[in-house]
Design a protein around this nucleic acid. Structure first.
Lengths: 334, 334
DNA sequence: TACTAATATGCTACCGGTAGCAAATGCTGT
DNA sequence: ACAGCATTTGCTACCGGTAGCATATTAGTA
């Protein structure tokens, strides 16, 4: 019995219980072929020593860590929080623990991927990250031994499985709704520029309006998905750009931009929504439903996406490219 | 050179470079006493084999995992997201990776703590969790070998270091402001009941009003920090309880409850804020500043709290009980 | 009671690194 | 050429488990 602060090992427990360390280990396995009497004795000894099996040693031997790395580069969009909640809970139910990896200029995708490999995580999830598959990290990704998934964004590689919401359906629903209501002078409010693939929503909106005679869809680009920055940038563009000022509907890439747009339009510019200008979001965050906003948006099925992702991670379902549909929610901003 | 999918080891690299595995390992240490020529040869061999050192093996030997477990039981309060952002970024800068552990009925504090021990994380952070120190997990906590911290909540044990915002200062600032403005019929809007210690804000508000002649502070209790639930519960209480209906100020335990209160009061009950009823929050989330809400609240210094916590985790500063002050932000809901 | 089968326990070799000492090699001066 | 020293490389023993086979013990049957 060592009292030097170091955790007790199976060998310590074995010594106390008068058995070999392999018997101790068997006592902790559910299927262990072990005499009930011995098991109890071992468990008692383990309890007095406060023995906790060392998962590092186990993982080293079994080559399974039961760890998943979740890579996130945008902590400003509030939908991330409930989605992380569901994701961590679901993974934990499967015996998996999640690393929350913050991707930023100091800690790039390459660094994160390399780190994940070194820690031998069982799988990697790109959670809505602006992952650039043309960059050096693609090399790392290809040589990576662990299964990799993309959540809430379309994967750029065909070989990289992903679960995301169909942008064609979502944008079409919203655009048609807006068009039917008679809005004809749209402006797209965009977030940060996508790293590689042009982001689906933008492309779809452009396509929709082009088919109706609008050659180029005017755009306000906000370089961060962040409420405050968005307010500032949108306000500035309305100040300086007459074409923007003349719009009658703001098609926002996501809800957080839409809430910012709504606040600017209503309280800084003093416009009436939806009579002077309409606002449309995308995502379906909780706050979009609030009495203060009542935002027309498209609900992404985040929970379902997470559940499907977990099915893939646990290999109950084959890893593949899975496109899900949400639903348009019409409220009072259109 | 094995091509069987298993990652290359130092021994594989050694074989290719014609050295021993210990030389390979030296080549990867910055301080390694190794001939420059050999290092280059080893690094080349490592590159062709795509060798990545196995951190499990290293951790097993060094007894340091460079992993931190962050325990969270409430994913509904939006301040958690920017705080997690700062926390993960800060830890990563120190070479530490964070486990995001979701505490719930399936995965309790005890389970999480035991899991963290088995994974040999370097430290554990209770991030605003309703940790009940009287429960069985206290036993585990005491016997736990890894340093443990509480973030954004007052720790119940003196021995358990914590970083949190002074509730006395915050509540006093807000309460005095409200009192000066002439509000005299307050109702406290409470979140889930605290596990052990009565939560500071509630107690402080009660104290303040008692000193001014109000024996018991009426209360609306919402059992989850969740916008939708809060709306429902607050609405119901206004319906059914004349004492609640007669109030002139809603003192909310945090901003998310305050936003819900504000929406209910304005849009469901049709009351004017702040003339019919005032609303006060606590936390200082981004959205409280938005044009739609303009909520009077108390800004908690979350970023500073995180930075101080990291100083303790990295042992640059001694682990201790650290109380920080925020500032009252008076906006248009009072 | 002896003999077999079933169950229980112990063993070796290994997972991929680390620590710190031992041996080998290179370099200098005489 | 060789002692004397520093630098470079290799080695043993270990971190705490796992896998799967070998051996010991017990129970069941003739």
């Amino acid at each position: 019995m060592k009292e030097d602060g170091a955790a007790a090992t199976a060998a310590d427990v074995a010594r106390l219980a008068g058995v070999s360390k392999w018997t101790v280990i068997r006592a902790f396995k559910t299927d262990g072929r072990i005499a009930e009497k011995t098991r109890r004795r071992v468990l008692d000894a383990a309890a007095t020593l406060n023995y906790q099996p060392n998962l590092l040693a186990r993982s080293l031997a079994t080559r399974r860590t039961h760890q998943v790395a979740i890579l996130v580069d945008d902590f400003d969009n509030p939908y991330k929080l409930p989605t992380l909640k569901r994701l961590t809970a679901g993974l934990q139910r499967e015996g998996l623990l999640a690393f929350l990896v913050n991707i930023n200029d100091d800690f790039t995708h390459s660094v994160a991927l390399s780190n994940a490999q070194q820690r031998r995580v069982d799988s990697v999830v790109f959670f809505g990250t602006a992952y650039d598959p043309t960059a050096a990290s693609a090399q790392i990704l290809r040589s990576s031994s662990q299964p990799t998934f993309v959540l809430a964004r379309e994967s750029a590689h065909d070989t990289l499985p992903s679960v995301f919401t169909d942008p064609v359906h979502g944008v079409t629903e919203l655009a048609e709704h807006v068009y039917e209501r008679g809005y004809r002078k749209p402006v797209f409010v965009a977030g940060p520029p996508p790293a590689a693939t042009p982001l689906g929503r933008r492309r779809q909106y452009q396509k929709f309006w082009k088919a109706r005679g609008l050659e180029t869809l005017p755009e306000i680009r906000v370089n961060v998905y962040d409420y405050k920055t968005a307010c500032r940038v949108i306000g500035e563009r309305f100040e300086s750009d007459p074409q923007i000022r003349a719009c009658d509907v703001l098609l926002c890439e996501n809800d957080i931009l839409a809430l910012a747009a709504l606040d600017v339009v209503r309280y800084d510019l003093g416009l009436k929504v939806p009579s002077d200008v309409a606002v449309v979001g995308f995502d379906g965050i909780d706050l979009a439903a609030s009495g203060s906003y009542r935002l027309t948006t498209y609900r992404q099925p985040f929970q379902e996406m997470v559940d499907e992702l977990i099915e893939m991670i646990t290999e109950r379902k084959p890893a593949r490219r899975l496109v899900l549909r949400g639903e348009a929610i019409i409220r009072s901003t259109t």
